[in-house]
């Protein structure tokens, strides 16, 4: 959605610090994420890009020793507020993980799980429709429509990851977080997922963590570069890759380190 030719801001992080016990993992991150765009987070291993991603749907709550400070505002609401309900938040912000992690249940149950717990379908027919549209959006429908009641773990790696994407979009989230979604996949499956990401951005805001700079360049409109827990530079992907302001960014994208 554009207003006066400028993209709307969907998420804005202000002064975000993250601690694992005594160790600080993220330092004062300030980042704005535009709606209906793909934002890539790049950086060497251990730079904190995944940690930042997991702050956005409060998945870090699972880790006992992890503490998040600062403000993350989504739809004018600070999700780090005490009043924030994580169940509601995660309904709005879906996530796709590094390794495909379908539930060891049937394909149908994998997709229908989210809509079931959030009470989104009133009838079996509605649920069938949700399952079908989700699988179609994830470009998996044609491959699996005849075996919806077989276990999801029987699919190939790329299909499993698309199943996880279908599962994430089944509850119509506004934002989809992707944590290196292609790192366990072969180039063909990767290409399919990248195509899918391009399609999904029409309806969802996407944030993707990736190790592959080529992938970031291919799929994203905006890029943020993390290094040692700091956000070194962020801006349009074009600018970051062609004309970075910071030397470290320059060094990283040209492959001098990382």
């Amino acid at each position: 959605m554009k207003k006066n030719g400028v993209n709307m801001i969907k998420i804005s992080a202000k002064n975000v610090d993250v601690f694992y016990g005594k160790k600080q993992a993220l330092f004062n991150i300030n980042l704005e994420i535009e709606e209906n765009q793909v934002t890539a987070l790049i950086g060497p291993s251990g730079c904190g890009k995944s940690t930042f991603l997991r702050c956005l749907n409060r998945m870090n709550d699972v880790i006992d020793i992890c503490k998040v400070q600062g403000e993350i505002v989504i739809n004018d609401f600070n999700i780090n507020d005490k009043g924030c309900d994580v169940v509601r938040l995660r309904e709005k912000i879906g996530m796709v993980f590094q390794k495909p992690n379908p539930f060891p249940k049937t394909l149908y149950e994998n997709i229908s799980y989210g809509p079931t717990i959030h009470g989104m379908a009133q009838s079996k027919q509605e649920m069938d429709e949700i399952v079908e549209t989700s699988l179609k959006k994830a470009a998996l429908w044609e491959e699996v429509k005849d075996r919806l009641h077989e276990p999801g773990t029987g699919l190939s790696g790329g299909q499993q990851q698309r199943l996880c994407i279908a599962r994430a979009i089944s509850v119509q989230p506004e934002v989809i977080l992707m944590d290196e979604p292609c790192s366990a996949l072969d180039p063909i499956a990767t290409a399919q997922i990248e195509e899918l990401i391009d399609e999904l951005k029409k309806e969802h805001t996407i944030i993707i963590v990736t190790h592959s700079m080529a992938q970031a360049a291919r799929v994203s409109q905006n890029t943020g570069f993390f290094h040692l827990g700091e956000l070194i530079e962020h801006g349009s992907t074009d600018k970051i890759f062609k004309n970075p302001e910071n030397n470290k960014t320059q060094d990283y994208i040209t492959g001098r380190f990382g």
Binding site: V87, L89, R90, N101, F103, Y113
Partner: peptide
């Protein structure tokens, strides 16, 4: 039980109780 299953359920917006009892 692999933690990835718990994460998958939590990320779908399941509560801790639902994650535990359903998965």
């Amino acid at each position: 039980v692999p933690p990835s299953i718990r994460e998958a359920a939590l990320a779908m917006g399941a509560s801790r109780m639902q994650t535990t009892m359903h998965h």
